[in-house]
Nucleic acid binder design. Sequence first.
DNA 1: CAATATTAAATTGTATACAATATTAAATAT
DNA 2: ATATTTAATATTGTATACAATTTAATATTG
Lengths: 221, 221
Amino acid sequence: MGIEHKTRTQLVAEAIREKILSGEIKAGEPLRQAALAEELNVSRIPVREALLQLEAEGLVNFEAHKGATATMLSADQIDEIFDLRALLEAELLRHSIVNLTPRDLLEAEAILYDLEEATAAGDTQLATGKLNAEFHVKLYSKANRPQTAELVAMYGKNSERYVRMHILLAGGIKTAPEEHRTLLEFCKTKDINAACDFLKKHITGAKDDIKQLLVKMEQSQ
Amino acid sequence: MGIEHKTRTQLVAEAIREKILSGEIKAGEPLRQAALAEELNVSRIPVREALLQLEAEGLVNFEAHKGATATMLSADQIDEIFDLRALLEAELLRHSIVNLTPRDLLEAEAILYDLEEATAAGDTQLATGKLNAEFHVKLYSKANRPQTAELVAMYGKNSERYVRMHILLAGGIKTAPEEHRTLLEFCKTKDINAACDFLKKHITGAKDDIKQLLVKMEQSQ
DNA sequence: CAATATTAAATTGTATACAATATTAAATAT
DNA sequence: ATATTTAATATTGTATACAATTTAATATTG
């Protein structure tokens, strides 16, 4: 049982990803291979490979001979990504919901409990971040649709920095806390169509909230 | 206006991609960096970078220290990919259909004409391949959903080898030729729901056809 | 002989060095 | 002075060389 040995490329990818998601590297900013290599104490090879990976994740644009830049998502692109998420997550839920066991639903409720507590405590970072994701993942956990799940994860990561930014600037997403409970209720009663429709609205609502801010930012430039 | 200069990585990616799609490299087969490098007269660096790109496209699995293999899609995975395609292509069509001009529809009809001619001439390769794709792309052309379109293109590429294989082994997909014409008709009358529902069935039908063959192949192993 | 440990070979991962391209600065011409 | 060329610099792309890891083969032990 040897310890997992991470390759430099993977470590570099994680480092750069976090820099982008945290906003330390701003959208549009060029990512110089040599600079990153020196900063992270590696050669340019793993930096290049990490950048290629991040491009696949949609976090980076890599143009031959020109170099890489952190992707800059326009309001339109955010719009599309959230629509895709709504579509794909509803599809996951549709397949998962019939397989959700009572235990799954209780576990989801447990997460929801923490989430509501975090909300009450004013920790929007935690509530709209980690716990929110955990709750959704739990509901999708029995979908048995690995490729769809991977897509959802990718777009989730891609949205993450905008959600974070929104939390920072607007103090959280105004998603009503009871929305999650409503969704869970539909899952319990196995009301597939109601659950999926509600989920779509839930995601689209978050989108509208974020987009409003983004449009304002685009105008103020 | 300098000529477009392709990087070795891009050329290598194209070469390997075609090898996989054509079946020259079979699913599951390991892709040795050194061998590919020598064969293509480059160093291992562009080979590695090409393999990373192909992994992002879903054609290759790249495991650290173990190496890359051509992805092997199970019947289940094929199933899921075609479901995703149905979902995403319907979404594209939904957004495109209202913007399709009479000219767009005539161009689609022109492609359809060629397609039907190819079918009549027995050229299923052309009919289910290039022309079929062209027809679909035309219908989606006014969706204004670049990221969704990119996903659709990716999954299209991913399905391609199985479609090709199916054409080879079963002499084409049994998609009724009139299905395309029905779809076009719904687009002309701007009957969005009918068009999208029909498109989903159209894609799912192709899936069932291919999956049947795949299940048989998996059993015979 | 089977199972495990050890060594050797193959293969991948990464650093360094150099080549190709793009960007910027300087020089020249209009 | 402005526009266009030319040279210098910065940056990316790729080959080579070496290090790390895995896989295969061999040796060792119970």
